[in-house]
């Protein structure tokens, strides 16, 4: 009951936030625009149109044009979902730790690890509901328009939600340490950008300084933090290869970033719970 209370409260808070309401309205607008605007030339099923204008004419060999469209939509969606998500949940821990609020929550017969865990679950569920709703809407529009019911696109909403869950653990840890919504939001964005840099470190960050210790530090950061960028890239691969998102990357799906991220998120959660337990408020 207590855990359910925290989960339900946080879920409600997540879906009522202005940021996520904006995202929800934007999502609905995109679904509506797709419903009204997307189509294909009757004589040529490989030629998609948007309000009558041809799009996606240069389809790579062996790629289905609808699958390409879905992969494109998935990669764009996951980017914006993360952006809105960071804005939406960055304040979740700092706000309950404010003076006058912390006393109310911490004086209740619930342990701090439960409060942290079920608040993270609630925040993730709130964002996941938005993600699944939007992706299901796009999936239904594409299915109705082209008769292609691409279940992997729908399932990718779970991969994006999972990736976001790992990010939430990190944002909550930052929230416990910083206790400031603005700083946590900045941290979230910086981490998001940094995770792209870490994923492609062999072609970027490693070249900045030819030093073994520096390279080891980057490797450690990559494995000790959720591999956000790698998870999102793989979600796009899962839908229909990432030829549009990143043609230089291998096109095969790799599940390991999800496994490593689960391990790092678990470690970060345990450290956060220990820190939370030790702190006075």
């Amino acid at each position: 009951m207590k855990r359910w209370g925290i989960f339900r409260f946080t879920f409600g808070e997540a879906i009522r936030r202005g940021t996520l309401l904006t995202y929800f309205l934007l999502g609905n607008a995109i679904i509506l625009v797709l419903l009204l605007g997307i189509g294909h030339v009757p004589q040529n099923p490989d030629q998609l149109t948007f309000f009558g204008n041809p799009i996606l004419t240069k389809v790579p060999k062996d790629f289905d044009v609808v699958q390409m469209l879905l992969a494109f939509l998935e990669s764009q969606s996951s980017f914006w979902i993360m952006m809105f998500g960071v804005f939406g949940v960055a304040g979740f821990m700092p706000e309950i730790l404010e003076k006058g609020s912390a006393e109310l929550f911490l004086s209740k017969p619930i342990t701090r690890w439960e409060l942290l865990l079920f608040r993270a679950f609630g925040a993730t569920a709130g964002i996941a509901a938005n993600i699944v709703y939007f992706m299901a809407g796009v999936w239904a529009v594409v299915g109705l328009k082209f008769g292609v019911w691409h279940w992997k696109f729908l399932a990718s909403s779970l991969l994006i939600s999972y990736s976001f869950a790992c990010l939430v653990v990190l944002l909550f840890a930052a929230g416990l340490l910083m206790r400031n919504t603005g700083l946590v939001t900045m941290f979230g964005f910086i981490f998001y950008v940094f995770s792209w840099g870490l994923e492609s470190r062999t072609r970027g960050l490693n070249l900045l300084w030819d030093n073994a210790v520096y390279h080891r530090i980057l490797d450690a950061l990559y494995y000790l933090t959720p591999q956000l960028s790698a998870m999102l890239t793989n979600a796009t691969r899962f839908v229909g290869h990432s030829a549009i998102a990143n043609p230089m990357e291998p096109q095969t799906m790799n599940w390991m970033p999800y496994v490593y991220s689960l391990a790092s998120a678990t470690l970060i959660y345990l450290l956060s719970a220990w820190y939370f337990y030790r702190r006075d408020y």
């Binding site: 009951m1 207590k2 209370g5 003076k99 006058g100 109310l104």
Partner: peptide, 21 residues
């Protein structure tokens, strides 16, 4: 004390009631 201000009075008590088990 600071309560979650998106709730009304009844919802606030129901929420804290849940936290009390």
């Amino acid at each position: 004390h600071r309560y979650p201000n998106f709730l009304n009075g009844l919802e606030t008590l129901i929420f804290f009631g849940r936290l009390n088990g």
